[in-house]
Design a protein around this nucleic acid. Sequence first.
DNA 1: TCAAACTAGTTTCGAAACAAAATTATCTGC
DNA 2: GCAGATAATTTTGTTTCGAAACTAGTTTGA
Lengths: 200, 200
Amino acid sequence: MSARETAELLLQVGRLVQAEGYDGELSPAQWMALRFFARANPFSRTPSAFAEFQATTRGTATQAIKALEAGGYLVRRPFKTDGRSVSLRLTSKGKKALARDPFEVLVRAVDSLDATERTAMRRALHQVLSTLATSGAHRRFGVCPSCTHFGREMCGNLPSTGPSAAECLLLGVPIQPEDVGLLCVHFQPMNEHREDGRTP
Amino acid sequence: MSARETAELLLQVGRLVQAEGYDGELSPAQWMALRFFARANPFSRTPSAFAEFQATTRGTATQAIKALEAGGYLVRRPFKTDGRSVSLRLTSKGKKALARDPFEVLVRAVDSLDATERTAMRRALHQVLSTLATSGAHRRFGVCPSCTHFGREMCGNLPSTGPSAAECLLLGVPIQPEDVGLLCVHFQPMNEHREDGRTP
DNA sequence: TCAAACTAGTTTCGAAACAAAATTATCTGC
DNA sequence: GCAGATAATTTTGTTTCGAAACTAGTTTGA
C-alpha cells in the first residue's frame, strides 16, 4: 500500500513541475529539450537521442527542436562522419535561458532536503528508473563513470596522448574531460545484462 | 550538484510514466482523472478539486471528465446542498479499468525497493511536494489522519453517535470510516501555518 | 428584498503536443 | 551497385492545454 502512495507522490511532483513550465517564453516540451541538449554529450545531441530520452517519437522531437532553433536557443551543425545526423548546441541565449528554467524550483525543493535524504532519494530513483526503463523497453541515459564502455588510459604510450585520457570503448573515440559527466545515448549500466540481444 | 541530478531523475520518472499512459483505452490526462476520483473523498470528487490537484484549469479538467463520462467510467450526481456542484463517482467499469492502469508499472517499480528505501523516499517526496506547493501557490491534498481539521470523538455523548466517530472540524460533518484515508481538498497539514491569510 | 459579487461548472478557441505514417537523404552490408 | 537500415523531416489528424467568455446557482450586504 505504501508503494502506491509513494508512486502517486512521484507522479504528483512530475505534474506540478510540468504545470510550472507554462511560463512565458518556452513551453514544457521546449524546456525539456533545452535541458536535454545542455546535459547531453556530443554523441547524444541529436533529435533521435532526445526523442528516446523523452520517450516520444522523432517527429515530435523535431518539432520542439525546430521551435527552439527558430527562437535562437539552439544551433545545428551536421556531423562530419555521418551526413544524416545533426548535432544541436545551445547558443548563449539558450544558456542564459536555462537560468530562468521553471524546473529550478524543483532543484531548490530537492536542495532543501538534508544530504542523507537526498542521496537516499537519488539511489532509490535510480533503481526505480532502471526498473521502469526495462519494463517499458526504454533506454536509460547515464554518464561515463558508471558505464561499461568507459575506459581510462592511465598513461598514454604515445607522446600525443595525455595522462589519464578517457575513452569510449564502444565507439573507440577519446572523451574530453568536460564530457565525462554528460548524458550519453550509448550508456550501458555496469553489472547489468541486456536480455533483448540489442547490442548497440 | 546532486540536487539537480536528483531533480532530473524525478522529472524523468514522471515523463516515462506519462509516455506509458498512451495505451489504448484512455489518455494520460484521463488516467489521472480516473485515479483522482478513485482516491478522493466525497467532498473532493468535483471538477474544481481535480483541477487543483492536477494543477490545471477547470476548463481542462471538465474535458477529461466529459470524456470519462462519455466512456461510462464516471457518473455524476448533483450535490444536494449546493446546486452548482456535482460529485463524480467511478462506475464498475471505471473500477475495473483501474486494474489496467499503466501507472501500475510505477507502483511495481517502487515496490521493488526495499522497505527502508521506500519509506525514506516517501518522506522525502512529501517534503519536496510541500516545498513545491508553497512556492507555486498550489494546494496540497492529503488525508484526514495528518490534517488539522480532523477530529475524533472518543465516545459519543448522544446515543445516535457511535463510538470513536470521525469528524471534519472545518465543515462540521461526520466522516465515514472508509473515507478517512481518501484525499481531501480541504487538507491542512499539521504543524504548518498558512502565510497567505487564505483560511478556507 | 434584491442587486452585486462570487463561485462551480461548461463551452469555445487557438496554440501546442502528440502519434503515426509518408518522405528524403544517407549510410551499410552484401 | 543495390537492398535494407537509419537520421531527420514533413504531413495529417487527434488530443491536450490555457485563456477567456459564458451560464447558472449562491452569498453578501445595503
